[in-house]
Simulated scan of single mutants.
Amino acid sequence: MGGFIPSGEATPAEEAELPNLDFYPAIVPAEFRSAMDVDTTVSTERLRLALQLSLMEVNRSLNDWAMAQIADGIATLAETTYVEYGSGETAVNHQEKLYQAAVFHLGKSRIIEHLRNFDSTGAGHNKADELSQPIDDFKREARRSVRAIMGQTGTVVELI
């Protein structure tokens, strides 16, 4: 009896962080893999592309707000708030964590959208339909994080 065991070529420890604009923090692919439960069956190239497109989209969403912060003399996202959780090397900056969440959730939605294309059987179509809800959930979480960075509240509306 034979079997196929997929194995990716990605080595998370060796994946270089993604550079970003000076105002925003860099994105670390290994942290994304760990936080969003993305294994090495997703190649390094595919993961980097999803994260790069996602950080560009988040940056574009925050552009006007970020330009206003820079005009006020604030050089980085981390400086826009004084809320830090923990201290020393384990300290977590609220704004940077929200930014990371926005990029990570959009990145995960892009990866799931791509995975939907692999199986064109009836079962594959059913699985693709099941993945639509998580994709929407990830995109919604990204929007919430972006709004939270800007200090805007959100409203949950249920359609009847």
Rank of each mutant, 00 (worst) to 15 (best):
E17M: 05
I112G: 02
D136E: 15
V92L: 06
S87R: 14
Q52E: 12
G8T: 03
I149K: 13
L55V: 02
D119R: 07
E84V: 11
V42R: 00
F4M: 12
L98T: 03
R140S: 15
T153Q: 12
V38G: 00
A35K: 01
Y82Q: 14
G73S: 11
R33P: 00
Q95R: 14
T76C: 10
A91Q: 09
D137P: 02
F138I: 01
N126I: 12
E57N: 06
I149C: 05
G8V: 02
S34E: 00
T76A: 09
V83L: 14
D72W: 05
L51Y: 01
E113F: 06
L55P: 00
D64G: 04
F118P: 07
Q152V: 10
V38H: 00
A13T: 14
V92C: 04
L53F: 03
A78V: 07
M56T: 06
G3N: 09
E15T: 06
E113L: 04
G154D: 12
A66H: 03
E130A: 15
D64M: 09
F32K: 00
R116H: 13
R60S: 12
E15Q: 09
Y82V: 10
G3M: 09
E9G: 12
N59V: 01
L159Y: 08
R140C: 12
I70G: 03
D22A: 14
D37W: 05
T44G: 10
H105I: 04
F23T: 08
L62R: 01
N117E: 15
S132V: 14
L62A: 08
N20F: 10
E9R: 08
T155A: 11
D72V: 06
E158V: 08
F104L: 05
I135Y: 00
V92S: 10
P19S: 15
I5T: 13
A148T: 06
A10K: 01
S132M: 14
L49M: 07
R48H: 07
R140V: 11
Y99T: 04
V103A: 07
K108M: 05
E130T: 06
G2P: 00
T76Y: 07
A91Y: 04
H125P: 06
D129V: 13
